[in-house]
Computed example of a mutant assay.
Amino acid sequence: GSWNQIKRLVRKLEIECLIRLFHHLVGRTDGSCDNVGLDRNTFRAILHSMFGMTDDMLMNRVFFAFDKDNDNRINVKEWVKGLSVFLRGTFEEKLKFCFEVYYLNGDGFISQEEIFDILKNSLHQQSSEEETDEGIKELVDIILKKMDYDNDGKISFADFEKAVREDRLLLEVFGPCLPEVKNCLDFEALAFRNIPTSCF
């Protein structure tokens, strides 16, 4: 029991520190979270500087996955919830988060077109347009063969979950949308450094 109490206490302190960091980032010194949020540019700058993300398209998608109420800014609840997945997320939570990042049109499926767009975005630097398009189409076919279990030409959450459970490397198959462990540790060192003293 006491171990769980300690874990709960640490969790509570971590959330308080995340809220404090949010205040700092939105420039509020009075401690009020009402009607404030991180806009997309500010949030992308945080993903870049604190979590080492570099892909514009994926950073936009991560923003939309954090922004649950679709008001184009991340409020304090969305901030804490999203970061909890980044830093402490279970495999299931990370699975759900990645799926949300990859489908954007709200229908609950990752379509062939979306796979094509994401892959084209991540590969476009490397070769000429014609080669790229042909190569990406082939890649889309390979991915669908591997992940589209019900053969309906798109990837449902059930498809995605089954594929990733069989091969965990497929979790970020369409590009890095979770921060690397090193970046998480750096972020924690920054965000939670005051826990032993000032959070009590």
Rank of each mutant, 00 (worst) to 15 (best):
D159Q: 08
E93Y: 10
L95R: 05
E166S: 04
R44Y: 00
A163L: 08
K7Y: 02
A45R: 09
V173W: 04
L25A: 06
R193M: 05
L185P: 00
L144R: 03
P196I: 09
E92L: 09
L47I: 09
T29Q: 09
R44D: 02
M147K: 01
E188V: 03
L83Y: 02
E138Q: 15
F63S: 14
N70F: 04
I15N: 13
G153R: 11
V164N: 03
D56R: 08
Q112Y: 06
F192S: 05
K77L: 11
V85C: 03
L83C: 01
K94T: 02
I74Y: 03
R11A: 09
R40C: 15
V101I: 14
K81F: 02
L170F: 15
D71V: 14
K182V: 12
V101A: 01
F109V: 06
V80W: 01
G37L: 10
T42C: 14
K94A: 00
H23K: 08
N151E: 12
F63L: 08
D141I: 04
E16C: 13
K120H: 12
G82V: 14
L47S: 02
K81A: 14
L185D: 05
N70H: 15
W3D: 10
E113F: 02
W3P: 01
E172A: 02
F63P: 05
L170Y: 15
I15T: 09
V181D: 03
C98W: 11
K120W: 04
V85E: 00
T197M: 13
L171S: 05
E78R: 08
L9S: 06
K77A: 12
G1L: 10
T42W: 01
K146G: 11
I142E: 13
G153F: 08
N4Y: 13
I143R: 04
F174C: 08
Q126E: 14
D117P: 00
L104T: 12
L58C: 06
D159K: 04
D148R: 12
I143M: 09
N4H: 12
I136A: 00
G82F: 10
A158R: 12
V76D: 01
D30E: 14
I142F: 04
K81G: 03
Y103K: 08
I136L: 02
L95G: 07
F63E: 05
L171Y: 09
D148A: 04
F187P: 05
A189F: 06
F160C: 03
V10P: 03
D117T: 15
E161K: 15
E131H: 11
G27F: 09
D56V: 04
F174V: 03
V76F: 07
N60F: 04
L123N: 01
K137E: 13
K137H: 15
R61G: 02
V85L: 08
V173R: 12
